[in-house]
Design a protein around this nucleic acid. Structure first.
Lengths: 125, 125
DNA sequence: GCCTATAGATGTATATTGTATCTATCCGGT
DNA sequence: ACCGGATAGATACAATATACATCTATAGGC
């Protein structure tokens, strides 16, 4: 039964905004997976999980949006530190542009919803 | 090769906002699939396609968000007319609330991006 | 009769996600 | 010295979602 509806984006940014989030976070400075996980969660992608995140980072590396290396940790296991590449910076700029588009569409959609209830109230004298 | 990144949400609302869009459109008045397809496309979900849309409508009907019946058309084949149910109205309200959350997170994220480049420019005297 | 636009539905390959599980390291407690 | 928990990263496989092609039908124009 192919049914995609399930429970929606409740209060959280859909996980598919993970890419722009990661690019933004890395534009703010180098970081490693475990830390990025907490950051993206705090940024709004509550449902982010390690599996997907690490996968994403590797995929981004394959696309040369980021590069990484192992770095020993003073406390705990070694970390893979990620930094944004030139490509990644460009990718971020593009992502941000489409995010702006999405934001505008959302605003329009929400206005449309609001005017809907306004009309409904207005029609009750 | 499992690579999820591909080309992102370029200029369009991700297809997974189809549900709130359809609910909003149906809140504005009854409609049928073919017409809804054009409307959601104009609303920003450029990549919406008939297959997914019709399936989506049937799924929403199974969830009792909408109800439908066949209606003969004056010109062309019969149409399945959809209307929003009480359930659907509630679903729309909830969807809209999470859309507002998403919008706010997006705004925060974009501000953060902007302040990033501001800092970069500011550091060049 | 044949072609096109309209209208709806289904089948299926592929892509993406979700969930569980696995390895390893360091630190603190006992 | 040994154990358990926090940190860190990675992988396998199932479940879902998406894209694309295809199929049925009807009405109207030519």
């Amino acid at each position: 039964m192919s049914n995609q509806m399930s429970s929606d984006t409740n209060g959280t940014l859909p996980r598919h905004y993970l890419k722009p989030c990661l690019l933004l976070l890395l534009a703010e400075g180098p970081s490693h997976g475990y830390e990025l996980l907490e950051h993206v969660r705090r940024m709004g992608i509550k449902g982010a999980e390690p599996g997907g995140l690490y996968r994403y980072l590797r995929a981004m590396e394959k696309e040369e949006m980021v590069s990484s290396w192992w770095e020993p940790s003073q406390a705990g296991p070694a970390r893979r530190t990620y930094v944004l590449t030139e490509e990644g910076r460009k990718g971020l700029n593009e992502s941000v542009q489409s995010l702006r588009d999405v934001r505008e569409i959302l605003v329009t959609l929400l206005d449309r919803y609001d005017s809907l209830s306004t009309k409904a109230t207005a029609s009750r004298p």
